[in-house]
Amino acid sequence: MIFAKELGDTLRGALDGDRRVVLLGEDIADPYGGAFKVTRGLSTAFPQRVRTTPISEGAIAGISAGLALAGYRPIAEVMFGDFLTLMFDQVVNHITKYQAMYAGQATCPVIVRAATGGHRGYGPTHSQSLEKHFLGVPHLRVVAASLYHDPRVVFADFLGRDEPVLYVEHKLLYPQHLTLPVHGMVGDLIATSDCSPGMLPTIRLSAVPAAECAVSVLAYGYPALLAAKVVERLAMQEEIFAELVVPAQIAPMDWAPVLSSAAATGSVVTVEEGADGWSWGSEAASVLSRRLFGKLRRPVDVVASAPTVIPSSKTKEAAVLVGGAQIEAAIRRAC
């Protein structure tokens, strides 16, 4: 099944298994079933708890917060991740504040799902990966969809805990098939799964064991898929070996698998589709310089998109967003 259907199936399971689960979002009801069809069929099966809303992101987040305070498990869909800005106040000053500022007397476990990312020609306001603005918001977990993580496992974790989560779903993952590790392999790559207590698994992919790799590539979401293709090709064609490290949770980070890989390879490249600077990769570079100072052969290389608007034109968009070519060039530099 493609990821969009796997995710829809996950949400159906959540609604079926837990009467506290409520889905809110724009155009999520049948027959339309959401802009990316993730929720198709769900409003028919659960008409009370799957509600299409007006174009009101602030109220979608705010009503979700109230539901969560009252013991429900709201899952809010943001049609385009670009519109997350319209719920920033709710996320920063309400949803993530309540538990801590009320000294633990309330919890606000809102799950926000957002369709992010470019390469679709949707232009400057429908293509962004704005999650970096949410990284580091205290008491907010930010988790990225990937083809190496079963959304059922990820959502079971969300629903089993009392913390708010932002789940970013890169649009280009929706039509792809999940590639979960089978017998320790993903395709021709060796796959291992590392997980510190309380964290979601980090998947490590490489053609040879990490100790024989020249570089660690840290990536999430769609760029992780791009990076996997580069890693696989360089290994098969040129015997350039890199280990790809793909966390599900990108804030707060489970640094242990990253440090383990980086210590083994001595060189790190980070990849993200968001705009360059003040980013996930910058934070990784900062943490790695503190934790592995003197143990890396070279500075951490941060690969990110150009800090400008994302053009609609296919060629111009490709020139701005991170693609396989930049990832490959960075890996070659870092070996």
């Binding site: 409520v22 602030g58 109220a59 987040a61 705010g62 009503i63 979700s64 917060a65 109230g66 539901l67 969560a68 305070l69 009252a70 013991g71 429900y72 709201p74 106040d89 709710q90 000053n93 309400h94 504040k97 309540y98 009320y102 309330a106």
Partner: peptide, 20 residues
């Protein structure tokens, strides 16, 4: 409950109403 930011408590209260 109370919060110090203007406006945002209104949808929060509406969410509690929806829960009810």
């Amino acid at each position: 409950k109370s919060n110090g930011v203007q406006g945002g408590i209104v949808p929060n209260a509406a969410g509690i109403a929806l829960a009810n």
